[in-house]
Amino acid sequence: MPLDQSFVGRTYPPTAPYQVGREKIREFATAIGATDPAHHDPEAARALGHPDVVAPPTFPVVITMAASRQLIEDPALGIDYSRVVHGDQRFAYTRPVVAGDELVCVNSVEEITSRGGHEFLTTRTDVSTTAGESVVAVWSKLVVRGEA
């Protein structure tokens, strides 16, 4: 079943706030081998002008992947997740994510195209603090592979 084109431009309601924990940033940094002290030591982060430890650049995916379930699991949009592969990923930062942030995601469907029997869904997630400060915009292109 093709994706419903009428979803292009649709924006979903904001997700529940995600509390960015210092230990979560340390855990993520350790998992990717990022040893810079600013990811682990609040003093080192403060020396760079941040209130607490700084997340590595791809950390926001922890939040946006969970947030995107809203869209992926929307039966009306009709994504068969078992046939999804990750196509593109992009982050445009206003500032880095830091421990203590309380972040809300707003998902929208930016583009739906099809080519060669596959469908391509581009989503945009605007990540901002609960106080309304924008932090990072995240784009993901998912490829829904056609049935062979």
């Binding site: 990022a34 810079d36 941040h50 700084v54 590595p56 650049p57 592969v85 982050f91």
Partner: peptide
């Protein structure tokens, strides 16, 4: 790749835009 980029940049908070295609 993000680690490589921040290492090249010389700072863990230097990245303002980062995109790839898999």
């Amino acid at each position: 790749v993000g680690r490589a980029v921040t290492t090249w940049a010389g700072s863990p908070d230097a990245v303002v835009d980062f995109g790839v295609r898999f």
